[in-house]
Amino acid sequence: MRIAVIGAGALGGLFATLLARAGHEITVTAHQAARSVIEDNGIRITGGFGDAQCRVLVREVLTETPDLTLICTKAQDATAAISENADLLDGSPVIVVQNGLDGVSTAGQLLPHSDCFGLLTLTAAHYMGPGRVRVTTAASSYLGRGSGQTDAATQRWQAVLATAFPTLAADNFVGAQWTKLVVNMLNALPAITGLSVQAVIGSAPLRRILTASMQETVQVGVARGVTFGSLQSLTDRNLRVFGRLPVALAQSLPLRMGAKMGPVTNLGSTLQSIKRAHLTEIDHLNGAVVREAGLAGRAVPVNTLLTTLVHEVEVTRNFLKPADVLARFEELTDDR
């Protein structure tokens, strides 16, 4: 099958390689600097899914219509990436591999004649450089669309992806996006401090902030009428319980997440963007919680400040010491 992967970052490089290893004909799009490296050396992955290297076609934009396309850009880059390939993509199936809540709806608006799906992945991958990806945590991915039961088209493409990497068809995909948004609260504090996800979870004061951001996310989802989708051990029932717990007890959730990551350092995708001097997708993560909270008439001070601090680091390129982060949150408490 001819499969295009738009975006050759950590997940794009990973999925392109795994799909090529499964026997599919792969084309990736990449910017000039990465394109020349991939043309010369291919894409190489190491870590959780084993070591593999593949040769793929590399283009600035697509030159023919594929049988299937994976959109693997950051959320803030999706509109531009889809738009510049829209003439060839509109009418063919598209899978959006992105964090946040808006990826599938954005693709549907730009490609009105395409079947559009979303893919949520709990795999953690580290972009080592053009054409080089290290998988720090190998996990399943979840394919779906809408709020109902999976349909025949979803099941068909799930079967295709599952030949290359563990993929499940997800009922209530919109709810699953909210569940993944809770998980993605792991990203902000590493981007602010420069610490790994494991180090943030290992710091009791930072872990309390992380936990509070997760609880705010759950509380906003409940206020917006969301039924959380099931991802691994996270369900609507236990997330609702988590959202009501005292922070001291609720910290068990990020602690369990940290234990599942294992010892290999996980930087988180937002910190990786900072290190590459790229803008982050924080407005689609913690910023999405802020936006949804506004629609629900709620205040989310923890997620609001985390969003602000990530934007500050984007500008200054200077990480904050944990003590300085805690001081900013103490100011927040004093103001209240």
Score class of each variant (00 low, 15 high):
Thr73Ser: 07
Asn85Gly: 09
Gly146Cys: 11
Leu119Asn: 08
Gly91Thr: 09
Asp90Ile: 03
Pro66Gln: 13
Gly144Gln: 12
Ala86Ile: 05
Leu101Gly: 02
Ala124Cys: 14
Val133Asn: 07
Ser92Ile: 02
Ala139Thr: 04
His126Thr: 12
Gly148Thr: 11
Tyr127Trp: 15
Ser105Asp: 15
Pro66Ala: 12
Ile95Trp: 06
Arg145Val: 15
Gly103Glu: 13
Gln76Val: 07
Cys72Phe: 02
Asp77Ala: 15
Ala139Asn: 13
Tyr142Ala: 08
Ser140Ala: 14
Ser147Ala: 15
Gly103Asp: 12
Met128Ala: 15
Ala78Val: 06
Gly144Ser: 09
Thr137Gly: 00
Tyr142Ser: 01
Gly100Trp: 09
Pro130Met: 06
Gly118Cys: 10
Ala81His: 03
Ala138Ser: 14
Ser92Glu: 05
Gly148Gln: 14
Ile95Glu: 08
Val133His: 02
Ile82His: 09
Arg145Tyr: 09
Gly91Pro: 06
Asp67Met: 08
Cys72Trp: 01
Thr123Lys: 07
Leu88Gly: 11
Leu70Tyr: 07
Arg145Cys: 10
Thr73His: 02
Ser92Asp: 00
Ala152Asn: 12
Leu143Ile: 11
Asp115Glu: 10
Ile71Thr: 02
Ala125Glu: 09
Cys72Ala: 14
Cys72Met: 01
Asp90Pro: 06
Thr150Arg: 12
Ser140Glu: 14
